[in-house]
């Protein structure tokens, strides 16, 4: 089971119907993401990157093609089966955070854990741990609206991780953040990734994409480039004292 790629797609196609005019959003994106990979999906707006990641999480139904999640065929699942799959194995982070406004930060984070079947006590422990790690322990009882954008996205990240998903899908997680908060969120994603989390992140921000191991560029619903980001030319630096020789 562990040999199966976390995500594998075979020629998935998504065509939206705009009135009578079919609008293809994704046109056969063959993709394979192994466990522990951090993949950035890039492309200009309208290139189908959000649609792709929505399909991978079952939020959107593919028109044709196959989607395999952890070795299991997923594109044929019903909406409810997808929901079960999500609550057990997929976490989502969105551009607009999408925290439940009526619930406290704590409840927001505990919700997916409870959904996945954790007892309230386990969910609370998990939440305390995550919020503590993200530096938000003090805001647990606040409503999300009282948090700054960056804090909200960190809560959203905690929520996405609350049920320990095997796949974290992030749709423009930094799209609505300023530079500083972008840096914080990206650092968190990198750290989560270093611990082995498989991440697929949609972004149009190159700086965000550079945190990934691998960048997939989409254009008009098709892959135009799929390659690992090359390692630093001179190997890892041992400390910051080294001189950076930035070309240009």
């Amino acid at each position: 089971m562990s040999e199966d790629p976390v995500v594998k797609t075979v020629n998935p196609v998504k065509i939206y119907q705009n009135g009578d005019v079919p609008v293809p959003a994704v046109r056969g994106v063959d993709l394979q993401v192994e466990a522990g990979e951090f993949v950035a999906v890039m492309g200009p707006s309208g290139s189908g990157k959000s649609t792709l990641v929505h399909m991978l999480g079952g939020l959107d139904q593919r028109t044709s093609g196959e989607i395999w999640i952890s070795g299991k065929r997923a594109d044929t699942l019903s909406e409810s089966k997808w929901a079960l799959l999500r609550r057990r194995g997929v976490g989502f982070v969105f551009q607009f955070f999408n925290l439940i406004g009526n619930m406290t930060v704590a409840d927001n984070v505990e919700l997916p854990a409870l959904l996945a079947g954790a007892s309230p006590r386990e969910a609370r422990q998990r939440r305390e741990f995550l919020l503590g790690e993200l530096g938000l322990a003090a805001r647990a009882d606040d409503p999300p609206a009282r948090l700054a954008g960056g804090e909200q996205q960190r809560v959203a990240l905690a929520r996405a991780l609350a049920h320990e998903p095997s796949l974290l899908l992030a749709d423009e997680p930094t799209g609505n953040l300023d530079t500083r908060n972008t840096r914080d969120v990206l650092r968190l994603l990198s750290q989560v990734h270093k611990k082995g989390q498989t991440i697929i992140m949609v972004t149009h921000d190159h700086r965000a994409a550079s945190c990934a191991d691998r960048v997939i560029s989409l254009l008009d619903g098709q892959i135009v480039d799929d390659a690992p980001i090359p390692a630093a030319r001179r190997g890892p630096r041992r400390n910051a004292g080294d001189v950076i020789e930035l070309r240009g």
């Binding site: 700086r207 550079s210 945190c211 560029s217 390659a227 980001i229 630093a232 910051a240 950076i244 930035l246």
Partner: peptide
């Protein structure tokens, strides 16, 4: 693009370790 992303990554790393 890849090359620049590699550079960007390096800068990230540098930033983190600074």
């Amino acid at each position: 693009t890849r090359h620049f992303l590699g550079l960007m990554r390096e800068l990230h790393h540098l930033s983190e370790t600074t």
